[in-house]
Simulated assay, not measured.
Amino acid sequence: MAHATVEYTANVEDAFDLNALLALIARHMRDEAGGVFPVGGIRVRGIRLDHYVIADGKGPDDAFINIDVKMGVGRSAEFRQTYFDALFAAVRSFLEPMFTQRPLALSMYVEEAEGWKANSIYDRLKKAH
């Protein structure tokens, strides 16, 4: 399991390509993790936030993008540090033009989670290979 939720303020919706950002994160989870994240368990989604207050509430161009990642337990601290440093750097590079265009806060939080799930996507993936 590796799930990422990208929350972004409505005032940046036209300032970046959300689908490209989601694809970048999914590709990173598939290709840069060395098989640590099962492909069938990867989920990346974007959520536009229409209601928010940032800082003192007086900067109409203030914006934020936050990425919350949940993954199953068991990855080493070294893996988490190296992998998520690289993911954050890739996202930061992708969004670089926005930092010069407006006040922007970018954050990423990672959580190990235990959960219950049912997933037949694995069956489709097995048939495809």
Rank of each mutant, 00 (worst) to 15 (best):
Val36Gly: 08
Glu13Leu: 08
Tyr83His: 11
Asp61Tyr: 09
Asp62Ser: 13
Gly74Asp: 03
Gly59Phe: 09
Met71Trp: 14
Val36Gln: 13
Pro60Trp: 08
His28Ser: 10
Val53Ser: 09
Phe84Ala: 04
Ile25Val: 12
Leu21Tyr: 04
Pro103Val: 06
Ala55Lys: 08
Asn119Tyr: 13
Val39Met: 07
Ile121Phe: 15
Leu87Asp: 03
His129Cys: 10
Asp31Cys: 06
Gly115Asn: 10
Phe84Pro: 06
Ile54Asp: 00
Ala33Trp: 05
Arg124Pro: 09
Glu96Met: 15
Val69Phe: 00
Gly115Arg: 09
Glu78Ala: 14
Gly59His: 12
Tyr109Asp: 09
Tyr52Gly: 00
Glu112Ser: 12
Asp62Phe: 14
Val110Asp: 01
Glu78Gly: 09
Asp61Phe: 11
Ala33Leu: 05
Ala10Phe: 06
Tyr8Ser: 05
Val39His: 14
Gly74Ser: 03
Leu95His: 03
Arg80Gln: 15
Leu106Phe: 13
Ala113Arg: 12
Leu21Arg: 01
Gly72Gln: 04
Ala128His: 11
Val69Cys: 05
Gln81Tyr: 13
Gln81Phe: 15
Ala2Val: 10
Asp123Met: 13
Gly72Asp: 04
Phe37Ser: 03
Arg45Lys: 11
Glu111Val: 11
Leu95Asp: 00
Ala90Leu: 02
Val91His: 02
Lys58Cys: 09
Glu7Val: 00
Gly59Cys: 12
Phe88Leu: 09
Ala113Pro: 02
Leu95Ser: 01
Leu49Arg: 02
Gln101Lys: 15
Arg92Tyr: 14
Pro38Gly: 08
Ala118Thr: 15
Ser93Asp: 15
Glu7Asn: 02
Asn66Ser: 13
Leu125Cys: 12
Arg102Leu: 08
Ala128Asp: 11
Ile42Arg: 05
Met71Phe: 10
Tyr52Pro: 02
His3Ala: 11
Lys117Tyr: 15
Gly40Asp: 14
Ala23Gln: 13
Pro97Arg: 01
Val36Pro: 03
Arg30Glu: 12
Lys70Pro: 06
Asp14Cys: 14
Leu87Pro: 05
Asp56Pro: 04
Arg102Cys: 07
Thr9Leu: 01
Glu96Phe: 10
Arg30His: 12
Asp17Lys: 07
Phe94Val: 05
Ser93Thr: 15
Val91Glu: 02
Ala118Asn: 15
Gly41Ala: 05
Asp50Thr: 10
Pro60Gln: 09
Pro38Glu: 07
Ala10Gln: 14
Arg124Leu: 13
Ala90Thr: 08
Asp50Leu: 07
Glu13Cys: 09
Asp56Met: 03
Ile25Ala: 01
His129Tyr: 13
Lys58His: 10
Gly40Met: 10
Arg102Lys: 07
Asn66Pro: 01
Gln101Ile: 05
